[in-house]
């Protein structure tokens, strides 16, 4: 009987968030960057800005689904609180 080896696919995710104002985009980018350290092995991330006030976040994971799901979840949460505090200040 042949055994089936469990393999996890390489996953890539690209998030694009469009902002009305450049100031808001750069404030969020600056705010998120310091936490982009000490990634678990197999996970990598890049954050950049596009010409039309868009924040682009590229993630890739070789280590299964859990890490990338949790990372995307936390990043979106942080962006959401950043947007909220700017709106409410």
């Amino acid at each position: 009987m042949s055994s089936i080896r469990k393999t996890t696919p390489e996953i890539s995710i690209k998030l694009q968030l469009s902002f009305e104002k450049k100031k808001q985009l750069y404030a969020l980018l600056k705010s998120l960057k310091p936490d982009n350290i000490d990634f678990p092995s197999g996970l990598s991330m890049e954050m950049l800005t596009d010409y039309d006030n868009t924040l682009v976040i590229k993630l890739s994971s070789k280590g299964g689904f859990g890490k990338i799901i949790n990372t995307v979840d936390e990043i979106l949460e942080h962006i959401s609180i950043g947007v909220n505090v700017i709106a409410n200040a």
Partner: peptide, 18 residues
């Protein structure tokens, strides 16, 4: 860690924006 990051994101965003 996850809790500290929430406060840090709020503080950094406000600092950068204002």
């Amino acid at each position: 860690g996850p809790c500290l990051r929430v406060g840090a994101v709020v503080a950094r965003t406000l600092s950068a924006f204002h």
